[in-house]
Design a protein around this nucleic acid. Structure first.
Lengths: 226, 226
DNA sequence: ATGTTATTTATTGTATACAATTTTATTTAG
DNA sequence: CTAAATAAAATTGTATACAATAAATAACAT
């Protein structure tokens, strides 16, 4: 009944659960439990976890196992800054090959986004938002860059889980249509600017600069509470 | 006598051998031979090989094991194009924190390059050339980008092994000093342009567009030989 | 001799066993 | 009752055994 899953399939399932925040940052990923859940030996699971660790989706601490990565504030900034640098740069490459078919495909994806928004299906919404960005990047003729962007998109989903405000997911997905329209009209420069502003907006919607548990200065916090 | 090597140490040793072309593209990497060489079980070796595979230094084909990756022409172009896009972009970030100490450090590295050139030590030369680029990138305040550049530098070493002309390594290392001088003089724009031209020059020195075994058109090749 | 099939050898894929380590629970002292 | 020390359980680290697959060699037929 439960057909055998390939390593790749297991990888995708775990990744999806993480990206959709079913497995939130910090969550433990015990080899035994996963092994049992997927009906494979720990060997296979370890392989998958090690891959996720190299992609910085997961962290592995010696003798403590794998946890869903909880990005630091600095990591969050670096990832968003990288995207702000790179994604607009790819727009001209993408527009070289932009076709009616592409436009149709992405418009259909935006419909799904709208649907997910209406259903308040946060998981689907996060997934689709990331997918929009990395499938766009995949249209450039540089798969090396596209793969890197895809990784940054997955990692961004972790950032949103940690630093995102309630609306930092949904508020920007409505906009995506604007980009498609700019691209349909071959407005190269405007599309590039739009992408940059879009990502800057996402970055600014994050609750950065708010100290997390580790860095709280208790001395200062309770200074006036004698 | 032979002290136990960590997985990380094994990883670095294999990577170094590949980058320095001691293990050329296409070379087989049999698990039990490596296992014996490093005095560790196959489990540890597999872990290292899988990491190298995710970094595209090595390819793993199911049931056929690991080989040093032999980049295709397209892969070579994509990697060089990525570097041409990204490395100049990082120059301003690097110059923000550029210090006398940095300058001194890199000038020392260039001395080593010169030395290696004089000794005709190709291995050291390739390694140092890559190191120059990725340690420079590491000075930017964005380690996400720096890590990506480092990977591209390692992969570039494979590209040179496959598509490099005799002089495509040595001819560009002499120039590196020019960049350091531009940075010492805070010539931001010029440094950026220099980097772009430098990488374009490396790309153009590659023997791309020469069909490899797979793509030979025999019809055309033997058209006039009846 | 050449091309095909069968057999052997070598190599990778996967699970499992056991050791090392960390985490949790229990006991004991103050 | 709290805190430290100890014991038990759970979890990861590593090696090894065996199965599955591919490569190399030998045997055979055309």
């Amino acid at each position: 009944m439960n057909k055998m899953l390939s390593d790749e399939a297991i990888y995708k399932k775990i990744l999806k659960s993480i990206v959709e925040h079913q497995l939130p940052p910090g969550a433990r990923l015990p080899e035994d439990k996963l092994s049992e859940a997927f009906g494979r030996s720990r060997t296979s699971i370890r392989k998958v976890l090690q891959r996720l660790a190299l992609e910085r989706i997961v962290t592995i601490e010696p003798n403590k196992g794998a946890h869903v990565n909880r990005p630091s504030e600095q990591e969050a900034q670096e990832i968003l800054d990288s995207r702000i640098m790179l994604e607009p740069l790819l727009i001209p490459e993408i527009m070289k090959y932009w076709s009616k078919a592409n436009s149709k495909y992405f418009r259909a994806m935006l419909k799904e986004e709208k649907q997910a928004e209406a259903n308040e299906d946060q998981a689907a919404l996060i997934q689709l938002t990331a997918q929009f960005h990395y499938e766009l990047a995949a249209l450039s003729d540089n798969s090396v860059m596209a793969d890197f962007i895809q990784q940054l998109c997955y990692r961004s989903s972790l950032i949103i889980a940690v630093f995102g405000s309630r609306h930092s997911v949904s508020c920007d997905c409505g906009d995506h249509l604007e980009l498609i329209e700019l691209m349909d009209n071959e407005q190269n420069k405007q599309a590039q600017d739009w992408m940059k502003q879009h990502l800057i907006h996402i970055k600014s919607s994050l609750k950065l600069g708010v100290s997390d548990g580790q860095k709280i200065n208790f001395q200062q916090l309770f200074a006036n509470s004698e």
